[in-house]
Amino acid sequence: MTANHEHYHHPETERHSAARTKAIESLLLEKGIIGSDTVDKVITFFETDMGPLNGAKVVARAWTEPQFREWLLRDSTAAVASMGFFGAEGEHIRVVANEPGVHHLIVCTLCSCYPWPLLGLPPYWFKDPVYRARAAIEPRAVLREFGLDIPAGTEIRVWDSSAQIRYMVLPERPAGTAGMSMAELVPLVTPGSMQGIELARPVAST
């Protein structure tokens, strides 16, 4: 269920998939359908430039600029695009805000839709059939397994990205962060807090 949930993949199947993928790339290159460096460019881009740091910047800004927060919740796609975050799987983004009494969680029950420009590629557990099957049905139990206890009086809303919309959670700003700058706030915004499986990191008590 959690990130530790491991699957065993038969080496034979892995070898076959690797050979089949090579065969596809080899044929497409030979036919001139894809360029010799196109696939490399795509992979490099996703491995280096796209990731949850983008989403963290959006969250930190929403915490510090009420006007931006209002725009973000009203028209998320436009608000995040203004920060340069758009492109594949970012066409229709909706940011939902945690608040006292309401906690949000994201899932894609049918496949793996995820706001790539803000969070990068989804982690393993997000794509797992077990999470996808259970998140909408028993979110409280699922969150507990992730180590997050949501009080009984707090409503949990689960957002299924299987339509055209990719959701992201705006976590609540941790206590004791008044006066902190964007640069200080960004590290508090964990990927999990934008998926809804945890809260933003509390400030280390000194």
Partner: peptide, 27 residues
């Protein structure tokens, strides 16, 4: 896609378990 961001890792875990997964994704 935006190109001015510092390199993050997706959730600190490997996005692709095997090289062929990255190739299939990229293709």
């Amino acid at each position: 896609l935006p190109a001015d961001q510092a390199p993050p890792r997706a959730n600190g875990e490997m996005v692709f378990a095997e090289p062929w997964e990255a190739r299939a994704f990229g293709i």
